[in-house]
């Protein structure tokens, strides 16, 4: 199926969504070990994670109030390709938005969770990882401590 390997403009929502639907159709109809299936998985991963970092994609998908759809994924890919703020693309709770900002800033800083946890008064590494996936709520002062450790200021729109 040639269309699996078609070049897609990642800033064009209709092209991206159409391509993701092609992958979805392949997953539904092709055998697991077939060339089509394998190529679709590779192209799907490339299109998605080249524009939305793997861990940010997980964080967002994990915290949506519904199963992530093709349309949701397409919106994230387009926003990522346009270097837009991924925390504002889909409806997410404030904790998740802060966690996205934190994860982006932490990756930019080059600091690992372990290094940050070592400097934090309030969190160990295990709790920090959970917080970074918005799996535990943190107080504003704890978030402030974490952002201070990585040397980033943020403004948060809660609504």
């Amino acid at each position: 199926m040639d269309s699996i390997n078609k070049a897609v403009d990642p800033t064009d929502i209709s092209e991206v969504e159409q391509q993701l639907n092609i992958f979805k159709q392949v997953y539904a109809t092709s055998a697991t070990g077939s060339a089509d299936f394998i190529q679709a998985t590779q192209q799907d991963n490339e299109l998605t994670y080249s524009n939305v970092p793997f861990r940010l994609f997980l964080l967002i998908a994990y915290n949506l109030d519904h199963e992530i759809t093709v349309h949701d994924t397409a919106k994230l890919i387009v926003a990522g390709a346009r270097h837009e703020d991924l925390s504002t693309v889909l409806p997410l709770d404030p904790e998740t938005k802060v966690a996205i900002r934190f994860q982006e800033a932490r990756v930019k800083s080059g600091l690992t969770e372990k290094e940050i946890a070592a400097k934090s008064v309030e969190l160990d590494e295990y709790k920090l990882i959970k917080a970074e996936y918005a799996r535990i709520p943190l107080s504003i002062s704890t978030w402030a401590e974490l952002f201070k450790i990585i040397g980033t200021k943020i403004t948060i729109d809660l609504f």
Partner: peptide, 19 residues
């Protein structure tokens, strides 16, 4: 990456399914 309906083994072992 799993085919529709082929995720049971991985989910039984703690994997989380997203699409």
């Amino acid at each position: 990456n799993v085919k529709n309906g082929d995720s049971q083994f991985y989910e039984d072992n703690g994997g989380v399914l997203f699409g």
